[in-house]
């Protein structure tokens, strides 16, 4: 299914924000020039078809008191699936990428408190017998999660 011109407008305009008022759709109707019912149904369809993963807030984990880090491991090819299953069995692991490098497993750990990050890392090391490299953000220069279509 191709994206319609209205889908593109919705994607490009609604990644950055959404009106905070009782009836946000009718406010959008004026700014996007697309009928409210159509906006809702297009978002629904794009969610179903997998163009959109979510529609809501992106929380700032550290500000809300949580812990967040990027972690990496060197995993032997023969153990990759087994280790993936162990790492992903932790509810604190948000997503996990295989990358082409000696350090070939990269994942995000998000916890309710900062101290728990080290706890999760230690547990993963114990269960897999592989060192986990902890690479938390030290300084943010730029972050943009908007994609133009």
């Amino acid at each position: 299914m191709e994206l319609h011109e209205h889908d593109r407008i919705i994607i490009n305009q609604l990644q950055g924000g959404f009106p905070l008022c009782a009836d946000p759709w009718h406010e959008l109707e004026n700014t996007l020039n697309i009928p409210a019912e159509e906006i809702i149904s297009r978002i629904e369809r794009m969610k179903t078809e997998g163009y959109l993963s979510r529609f809501g807030p992106m929380y700032h984990a550290e500000k809300m008191g949580g812990g967040l880090t990027l972690a990496a491991m060197k995993v032997d090819k023969s153990r990759y699936d087994e280790v993936t299953d162990i790492v992903n069995s932790f509810s604190e692991v948000a997503h996990n990428y295989e990358r082409e490098h000696e350090l070939n497993m990269w994942f995000v750990i998000a916890t309710e408190s900062p101290e728990q990050v080290q706890q999760v890392i230690s547990e993963i090391e114990k269960k897999t017998d592989i060192r986990v490299y902890n690479m938390p953000k030290k300084q943010e220069f730029f972050l943009n999660l908007k994609f133009e279509v």
Partner: peptide
């Protein structure tokens, strides 16, 4: 929560690969 920065942004989250 937006003013405090607890919410970084509020809106659509796209699947960039699909796009």
């Amino acid at each position: 929560m937006q003013e405090k920065g607890d919410i970084k942004r509020f809106g659509l989250v796209v699947r960039h690969r699909k796009l």
